[in-house]
Design a protein around this nucleic acid. Structure first.
Lengths: 331, 331
DNA sequence: CAATAAAATGTGATCGATCCACTTCTGATC
DNA sequence: GATCAGAAGTGGATCGATCACATTTTATTG
């Protein structure tokens, strides 16, 4: 085992019998070299196991090749999205710094601002509300994964909640007339949108909403929501903010003696594995988190390069999945 | 909006009327300055909103202040652990690069090796099996979160599975005699350990195991495991690798007409929220993932500094939680 | 108050790459 | 063989910090 220091560009140049500039050129664009020189340099690079010192490079070029992904610590950790985002970034030659931020919106936007100022990252992807108005701070572009997609598609703010309409329509087609919505944390655009679309759909279809419960994405909030309802409110269908909440709703319903889906239908969101195997299995919306992560990063990279926003490669299709937790209302 | 370039140490020095070295000293240890100079420098730093260029610093000091956390893409994303780890690292002045690796053990260890050689990170935390023998590569310490804890405590390899004994004992105390284990992916030490401890406990307590199913941490594997059993095998208690698997086991049992816990008791692991609200709610093992993440990083930092391994601050206590999915066996 | 040690500050080299402005070499073309 | 373009070399500046060492200022002491 040899602790020997990594080779520098000069050592490579010496071994190859060329100047360090040529090696630098080789690094930038190997094809610009004469074949004979290229072979020499290649050989030297291999022999010395040379790897350019990225720190030195960054110093000179003022490019760090690093992105930051900011996420809020909270009940749902966006693992799939994060993994896909990080992989996409790596493929594009970027490294990914993950920053998990505790605390409220204030702390979050302060941390993001700090990150932008640090000069350490070329772009920031926020998987959580940022509380920032501008999408660029000190030259550093910021993409908020939650909201960009809709604006991009030109579908307006509410696009990502459009499935709520399908859910309500589906439930109505089963015969449901009295609905209830357990919303997610209203700091999140997605939660606000779903709530708005829910109300709008109910209104438009001439249905009845017994109310909206402002939850926080937790199962407990789902449980509390359903158990707080009056016994005679007549609700037969619940649109939950996500599967975890839906699970709480189901449990709460059972605890008051309501069967699911016999007395109450429950619709979730996210297609979580445990929801699929739960009893009753949850009707839900399958979301392509990987595509979201990929697209968010691609969008950020475009932003960095000053290119126009790319069309999402795989247009995210949120598919409704119908399972045991939804059925016609009781007669 | 001014795109103006960030201030350098020289500009600060000039404004403060001192040399750049003095400013550098101020950065390193403000107290080593004469109060009067310190005030001058302080003022200049504030006025120019100066932030040291970390790239330049790294270049000179040859320290990057960066750690890498490697995780395998797979069915369970270690979100809580990752968040806690990343936060702990930040508090210690380190930045965290998250690398999510696709592919098998081979690809994984290759990627880790690459990372170590890159000189970009000072240490690596692997939240997944590495397939590496040495715990140090090219001077870069590597901590495998999965296994270090046990060795550290001097409790042997199997410590993290010790709760399996408690589970089996508890189930036995309820009257169970015929057990079944659905194991996790055997690439993981934790899965191997739980399996080994399960077998050992069954043996020692004079109980009967109708078999072990080598699963892969997924709900489907739990479902398959239980539905693949012979109808007359007589099993009454299942120890599942984790809650997701347990969920699959429960569902599979119901699908064959076995009630849980009436005919079959099922024990999970991880205390996932959805398991708490499922019907039946899952008996499980509450694991302090945050503490694991923290401890792993602290251990890595000690390794980097060449200090002895720290005693885990909050000794991880894995607490058994008894819920509806376990009960005495049928009479 | 001069001598001297200690503390504070300044000077210039250094890390390893890229970039720049030239000059020199090579080989194809007319 | 003169011309010319592209490839390669030369030598050094540059990025913005830290650090080893030299020098100045301050405090201490007889």
């Amino acid at each position: 085992m040899e602790p020997k220091k990594p080779a520098t560009i000069h050592q490579v140049a010496r071994l190859a019998g060329v100047s360090h500039t040529t090696v630098s050129r080789y690094l930038a664009d190997a094809d610009s070299l004469k074949p004979k020189t290229r072979v020499k340099v290649e050989f030297a690079v291999k022999t010395l196991d040379y790897r350019p010192n990225l720190v030195a490079r960054s110093m000179r070029t003022r490019r760090t090749n690093r992105l930051a992904i900011v996420l809020a610590s909270g009940p749902h950790f966006p693992g799939r999205l994060l993994a896909a985002a990080s992989e996409t970034a790596h493929k594009a030659g970027y490294q990914v710094e993950v920053v998990s931020v505790e605390g409220g919106p204030r702390a979050r936007s302060a941390r993001i601002e700090d990150l932008a100022r640090s000069g350490q990252v070329e772009g920031i992807l926020a998987i959580s509300p940022t509380g920032l108005k501008s999408k660029r701070l000190r030259q550093v572009p910021i993409v908020e994964s939650e909201t960009y997609d809709d604006k991009l598609r030109g579908l307006g703010e509410l696009a990502d909640a459009s499935e709520v309409v399908e859910i309500v329509e589906y439930l109505a087609s089963l015969g449901h007339r009295s609905f209830f919505h357990v919303a997610g944390d209203q700091d999140f655009a997605s939660a606000r949108n779903r709530k708005a679309v829910y109300l709008e759909a109910i209104e438009r279809l001439g249905l009845r909403s017994v109310g909206v419960y402002d939850g926080d994405w937790t199962a407990q909030s789902g449980f509390d929501a359903i158990t707080s309802l009056a016994g005679d409110c007549g609700v037969t269908a619940v649109v939950a903010a996500n599967d975890v909440v839906a699970m709480g709703v189901v449990r709460g319903a059972l605890s008051r003696g309501w069967s699911v889906p016999g007395d109450l239908s429950v619709f979730g969101w996210d297609d979580e594995v445990m929801g699929e195997f739960a009893t009753p299995s949850l009707s839900t919306v399958a979301v392509d988190r990987e595509a979201q992560g990929r697209d968010a990063i691609l969008r950020l990279l475009a932003e960095i390069r000053g290119e126009p926003a790319p069309e999402p490669a795989a247009r995210t299709i949120n598919r409704l999945i119908f399972r045991e937790s939804t059925a016609p209302p009781p007669a």
